[in-house]
Design a protein around this nucleic acid. Sequence first.
DNA 1: AAACGAAATTTGTCCGGACATATTGAGGGC
DNA 2: GCCCTCAATATGTCCGGACAAATTTCGTTT
Lengths: 243, 243
Amino acid sequence: MTTRAARAAPRYAQVAADLRAEIQRGDYGAGSAMPTESALCARYGVSRFTVREALRQLQAEGLIRRRRGSGTVVDPDGGSALRQSLTDVKELLQYASGSTYQFEPVGPVVLSPQRARDLNAEAGERWHLFEGLRTMAGHHRPIAYTAAYVHDAFAAVVPKVRRGETIFRQLERLGGIKIAKVTQDIRAIGAGAREAELLKVPRRSPCLSILRCYVDTTGRIVEMSLSVHPGDLFTYSMHIDEV
Amino acid sequence: MTTRAARAAPRYAQVAADLRAEIQRGDYGAGSAMPTESALCARYGVSRFTVREALRQLQAEGLIRRRRGSGTVVDPDGGSALRQSLTDVKELLQYASGSTYQFEPVGPVVLSPQRARDLNAEAGERWHLFEGLRTMAGHHRPIAYTAAYVHDAFAAVVPKVRRGETIFRQLERLGGIKIAKVTQDIRAIGAGAREAELLKVPRRSPCLSILRCYVDTTGRIVEMSLSVHPGDLFTYSMHIDEV
DNA sequence: AAACGAAATTTGTCCGGACATATTGAGGGC
DNA sequence: GCCCTCAATATGTCCGGACAAATTTCGTTT
């Protein structure tokens, strides 16, 4: 091989890099529409395959959101710092093989300032709370305590929510909506009084906290869930290919 | 695969579901080769586009690994329990916008049993240690302490490693290898004595621990890095589309 | 004005083909 | 045996086209 260093990047990567620069420069204000696929084909003189591959990359990075029939828009909070983006987890969101999950409706609650800060939400809002514990077969200590909050707009369907299926899937079916995006924030926290008691760990012991926000196609937050895992029992694993 | 309509799911999803079931049933022993794309085209009577879309899905789930020229193999540890698998983070592995990272070579170390357990490695092995701190502009407290261990096979190139570029990229260039996969385990731990001092947090306070293993194309672990982040300063964010 | 429905728009799925590039293995030369 | 070259193989990139499905737009009707 003669020219070792400068091997040109594939065309879709160049298109992606160009669009990424435009987005981060603010050429398409957050939330506003981007050019359509055919427009990009004409602009760069490439096929739709190449454009779609570039857009797929930007979507995986969380910079854009796409909807069939609607178009491509810049994700309003896609450029926030300290954010790593991942895709395509399908049904696995709530699983843990060999574990069972039981939740109970608690009722409507109004967020306290403290709780609102934990959830990254507004204090005083009314949400419908579900509480649950996840246990592994053979273990006596639970591996997770979960508090799920459903928006008050779904008050009518909340009594119909059953165990055995994720809450957000039931909200989709019963509420006639579609979850388009899930954000997930992972932090280390000290166990609070309630978590310590339910998870059988000492108070203030290190726990993994996973806050999920379920957003529908119109951008409204439909459900929030806060899971707390004992630090010694739970590891969140992932892998990256094609480094 | 069923010839039944099942018009709800696109064809590539049906192919993916069929292959996923075969993999989990153990039809292709872990690490062994799967049928080639053209073989799958013939078997399912679909185009290469559809097969590649199905394989892309399985790769995103971490079930398979693919290499140009070589083929597709079942990922040996793709089916392990308590593991959520995610993909495609590309270059963003080590970033944190607005932060700076400084590391220093410490020298060769032999893993103590304690440290080996933290790293999920063998005690007594010899690795080359680098230590570093990551600080955000404007903050006086660091947001991460990182210990990176390079395998002894790269002892010759370790003195050539410089700041300003990730260690694993330099190992690729200087050592003539290629990182094919990165695994990442996130846990909540209590700050140890050393972390507490460097990160300016109380001992045993909750911290986020991120253990990364860099694996080359032949499956050898080339580098391991253990980052510890103060729980109150660091959140690991991600998002999932197309739920 | 509100409700309805058809048409245009836009992304998703799928096909067949072509060439590029990385890997592997067989064969030949030393 | 060892090393090099070359061909076969498998995945990556890219093209042009076609139809399907979801959404939006807009004109028509009530």
